Amino acid sequence: MQNLDYRVLDQAIEWLGQDRVVWLCTVLSTFGSSPREPGSMMVATGKGEHLGSLSGGCVEEDFLERLTAGEYDQPALVVRYGEPGEVARNSRVRLPCGGRLDVLVERLAPDSQNLAHLDVVRAALGGEGDVIRHVLLSEGRIWLENAGPNGPRVQWQAGEEVIRIRVGPVARLILAGYSSVAEACANFALSLGYQVVLCDPREEVTKTMTLPEGVDFLPLLPSLYIASEGACNASTAVVAVTHDPRIDDLAMMAAVKTAAGYIGVMGSRRTSGARAERLRRTGGLSDAEIERIHMPIGLDLGSKTPAEIALAILADLVRVRRGRMPVAG
């Protein structure tokens, strides 16, 4: 597991296990330019050792300087970098373009309760289902509750006492078959932090393909991988964009039997209607299973080129993952 936040939790647990106090920092909200989204984490010790990041460097440098000077001795507080507001302001750091960054800072003692708490959070990030961390600012008290797979990463407004942070499995995109649209989807997905897997057994297609670095390519039928143990969870999206029914239909038939949070296949409305009937008649899918499939896939942006189609698909993935309803047409 190479995800940065997973490694942050690994390091926090290791330091706590060595009987060391740690400071866990979580990005709560951003305004303007920011390289890390809400929910992103960093961990540090009182000596300035750290792993993870909050921004592009200036925030981390200032935070660690203040931490080693003994400034953050409260159990939990919110620090605002950038413009002033109702929470503690850090006046020494100015963010570019009038940006703003709110950061939750938790001081965690090396006790069994904190170790157990972070162990559950790490397991959630590793694929065992979403949880919501609750942090009571006035006391620093923390607790967990199970959650569904979709929703905002952070629920909090300045002045509120309880912060809710959703933690769940790393987003994964399974591309069922190669095409120019699949390649564009892979590029967008990687930039959004997805783990990307592309499956295609067609040597005549894949021998000349070009994939961005970071994509895991498996030369096998996508439906076989989709159906394999551990391939799909609620944070997995299965996308078929080949226009080859031998690839696309089998992938859909396998995907609806899994816990995948997003399932979609490319095609016009007419093609999608024909596919639905085919999946019902020859694939034996129920109406409820067919309803799980986004077809036509993606937001209706009037897309024409492979990059535009990929943009519409990834935008819809983000919409569903964040728990937003589609905009009425």
Rank of each mutant, 00 (worst) to 15 (best):
L175A: 04
I163N: 03
R172F: 07
N150P: 06
A189N: 09
A189M: 09
E183A: 15
R164H: 05
S191G: 13
Q195H: 09
L198W: 06
T210P: 03
I163H: 04
V162I: 13
R166N: 03
A189R: 07
L211S: 03
S180L: 15
G168V: 05
V162Y: 02
E203D: 12
A184C: 10
Q155W: 03
V170A: 14
V154K: 06
A171N: 13
L175T: 05
E183Y: 08
Q157I: 10
T208C: 08
G159V: 01
R164D: 01
T208E: 12
A171D: 13
L175Q: 04
L190I: 06
V181C: 06
E183K: 12
L198H: 05
I165F: 09
Q155S: 12
G151V: 02
Q195N: 04
P212W: 00
V197H: 02
A186N: 13
C199A: 13
P169R: 02
V170Q: 14
E160W: 09
P152E: 02
Q157M: 12
V181Y: 08
M209K: 03
C185D: 15
T208K: 12
G168W: 06
E161N: 10
I165A: 08
E204P: 08
E183C: 11
A182T: 11
A182Y: 12
V154R: 07
E203H: 13
R202V: 02
N187M: 15
L190D: 05
R164N: 04
V181L: 06
I163T: 05
V154Q: 07
V205Y: 11
K207R: 14
L211H: 06
V154E: 08
N187P: 11
R153S: 15
E183H: 12
A184V: 10
Y194N: 01
D200K: 00
Y194G: 00
G193K: 03
E160Q: 15
G193P: 10
L198T: 03
Y194Q: 00
R166I: 03
G151R: 00
V196S: 00
V196R: 00
P152T: 01
A176Q: 09
W156K: 01
E183I: 06
T210L: 11
G168P: 07
V167Y: 15
T206R: 01
V181I: 14
E203G: 10
A171Y: 12
E203C: 07
A186H: 13
F188A: 08
N150E: 15
P212D: 00
R164I: 03
T206Y: 05
V154H: 09
A176D: 08
F188G: 07
N187I: 15
V196E: 00
G177H: 05
A189L: 09
V167N: 15
S179P: 13
Q155Y: 01
G168H: 05
G159L: 01
V154W: 10
T206F: 05
P212G: 00
E161C: 06
I174P: 06
G193D: 07
R166P: 09
W156M: 00
I165Q: 10
G193R: 02
M209E: 02
Q195L: 06
V205H: 08
L211Y: 07
Y178A: 07
Q157H: 14
E204S: 14
A186E: 12
P212L: 00
S179M: 10
I165E: 12
V181K: 04
R202A: 01
V154N: 08
G151F: 04
N187Q: 15
E161I: 05
I163W: 06
